[in-house]
């Protein structure tokens, strides 16, 4: 059980690099679904109708108050308990753990980002909304054109750190038989009893992914925050 640099370079790292697309698929799909779901969650949470804000409040509390691993198990094993063998035979893809992992990661992200978005929507300056209303925009149009874009820009830094947390959280999918980077590293570790090569290799891959994701998110923040760039001298 010693660290063998050549073995790591030749065998472990390529296997881990081939697993990167699975990790990215988990992150991107859960990120897109989770962020899209966050919008209705935040809007419902801000509503004055108790039939809307109460469920949203409970949803956010559940997602933020319980461990993601428990949510993952509840989705994976719980849905497995509900889905009958007939359904499983009809839709063989349901055997794959990745769908359950994406589902669990999506609803978790929806809870966390929903709460962030709620704060951001409240932070949109009142005057802008009033001005839009004064122009005769309907409530829906105001929301789509003014409130939501402004809110997203306000909470972009918080949302992008949420995305980095999501990338790290995809590692939990390895516990429900998804062979993403950590799952693959675990597979090799169990097969070869090589502890250092596999886990340190996975660590290097994650650090590289987080570094690149940070760069991408910074670029997105710059692109979407054009209005906030320091003004050039005219």
């Amino acid at each position: 059980m010693t660290f063998d640099f050549e073995y790591t370079l030749a065998t472990v790292l390529p296997a881990l690099i081939f697993a990167i697309p699975t990790s990215l698929l988990l992150m991107v799909s859960s990120g897109v679904i989770g962020n899209l779901l966050a919008v209705p969650v935040a809007v419902a949470r801000l509503s004055r109708n108790p039939f809307l804000w109460m469920p949203a409040y409970v949803f956010i509390l559940l997602m933020r108050g319980t461990p993601l691993l428990v949510q993952m198990y509840l989705v994976y094993y719980g849905l497995g308990q509900i889905l009958t063998p007939a359904i499983m035979r009809a839709y063989p893809f349901l055997r794959d753990g990745i769908w359950y992992a994406i589902f669990a990661l999506s609803i978790n992200t929806a809870g966390y980002t929903g709460e962030i978005l709620r704060g951001a929507i409240k932070a949109v300056p009142h005057g802008e909304i009033e001005a839009a209303r004064a122009f005769g925009m309907s409530r829906w149009l105001v929301f789509r054109r003014v409130t939501l874009p402004r809110a997203i820009r306000i909470c972009l830094p918080a949302m992008s750190s949420e995305m980095i947390i999501l990338l790290k959280a995809t590692a939990l999918a390895s516990t429900v038989t998804v062979y993403e980077v950590l799952g693959t590293a675990q597979l090799i570790r169990v097969d070869t009893f090589r502890v250092y090569d596999t886990l340190i290799g996975a660590g290097v891959v994650y650090i590289a992914m987080v570094f690149l994701l940070t760069r991408v998110l910074n670029a997105i923040e710059r692109a979407l925050g054009k209005d906030r760039r320091p003004m050039s001298v005219a």
Binding site: K168, A169, T170, A171, L172, S174, T175, L182, A185, Q186, R189, V195, Y196, L199, I200, A202, G203, Y206, I207, V210, F211
Partner: peptide, 15 residues
Amino acid sequence: RALPELLLILLLYYA
């Protein structure tokens, strides 16, 4: 901060 918590726990436990 860059490493998943699960990976760190496994790394510190096994290695």
